[in-house]
Structure formats: C-alpha cells, structure tokens
C-alpha cells in the first residue's frame, strides 16, 4: 500500500522531468498516468490496488459526516419533546476488530450514532460497553444493524 503510493509519486516526478514542465499540471497528469499504469499492473503487487483503500476511507468519512448530522437531529428531537419518555440503558457489543485504531474509529462512530455512546472498552479489547439513550428491543436490533455497517466499512479499509 505505502509502496504503491510512493511509486505513484515517483512516477509523477519522473513525468515532470520527462516533459520539462515543473508545474502542478504536469504533476497531476503524471500522477494520473502513473495511477493508470499501476491499475493495469495491480496484480504485480501482493497487496490490493491502493485506490480501493483510499475509496474505502472516503466512504468511511462520508458515513461519519452523515451520522454526525443525524445524531444531532435525533438529540434535538428528544430535547424539544415536552414529555421525557426515554428508557436509558447500557449494553455490551462484541467486536471483531483487532487494531487499536480500528476500535477507536468504531467507538467514535458509535458515539456519533443517534442516541448511543461508548463508555468503556473491555480489558481484552473485544467488548464495547455502549450507553443508549432510548433502549428497547426494536432499537437494539436496529443499532446492531448500524454497527454492522460501521464495522464492515472499517474492515473494508484495513482488509
């Protein structure tokens, strides 16, 4: 992955030297050409073509922004409600993620989900204890569904 990005930058620089034009335009052209060559020779490397991972990161950022907006709207609704009929609770969430940054990202994403946030990660990094603002059986399965999409999106990046 890092090797491919580095090689792409080197190819962009080589293109600048070859075309005797040292400006951002020729760098971009060289970068795109290098990306095209790397794409057609992607099986040469034993890792995936790196743009797939970059695309996965972009998707994760888009999910992050979307959840941020939705959670703020959900909290706003609860605050503006005249009757306080929410049922708070804490539940445990098993996670398959291993790397520290993966768990951190998942915890941050859960915190941004409407009405949930992580209060504790267990000693062996396998269980997240999540506090839910409004907990009942229906929402339990719904939240687990959201978590599966987050976990899948993070795995897509680190795979």
């Amino acid at each position: 992955m890092a090797f491919q990005i580095l090689l792409n930058f080197v190819l962009a620089l080589v293109w600048m030297f070859l075309s005797h034009s040292y400006n951002p335009t020729s760098f971009i052209v060289g970068f795109l050409l290098g990306m095209l060559i790397l794409l057609s020779f992607r099986r040469f490397f034993n890792t995936r073509f790196y743009m797939i991972r970059v695309w996965a990161v972009i998707k994760l950022i888009l999910i992050f922004i979307k959840e941020l907006i939705l959670s703020n709207i959900a909290v706003l609704k609860v605050i503006l409600k005249p009757k306080l009929d929410i049922k708070p609770g804490i539940f445990a969430l098993e996670t398959e993620l291993k790397q520290p940054w993966e768990i951190t990202t998942l915890a941050n994403l859960i915190t941004l989900t409407p009405g949930t946030f992580v209060i504790e990660v267990s000693e062996d990094n396998k269980t997240l204890y999540v506090h839910a603002m409004d907990l009942n059986d229906d929402i339990q399965s719904e939240i687990d569904g959201i978590k599966n999409t987050f976990e899948k999106a993070i795995m897509e990046v680190s795979r």
Partner: peptide, 13 residues
C-alpha cells in the same frame, strides 16, 4: 518492480 513502471511511463512520453 520500480524500473518497469518508469520504462512504461517513458514509453507513454
């Protein structure tokens, strides 16, 4: 693994 890409880039040039 590096030189082949530089050669191909030069051929495009």
């Amino acid at each position: 693994k590096v030189i082949a890409f530089v050669i191909i880039l030069f051929s495009i040039r």
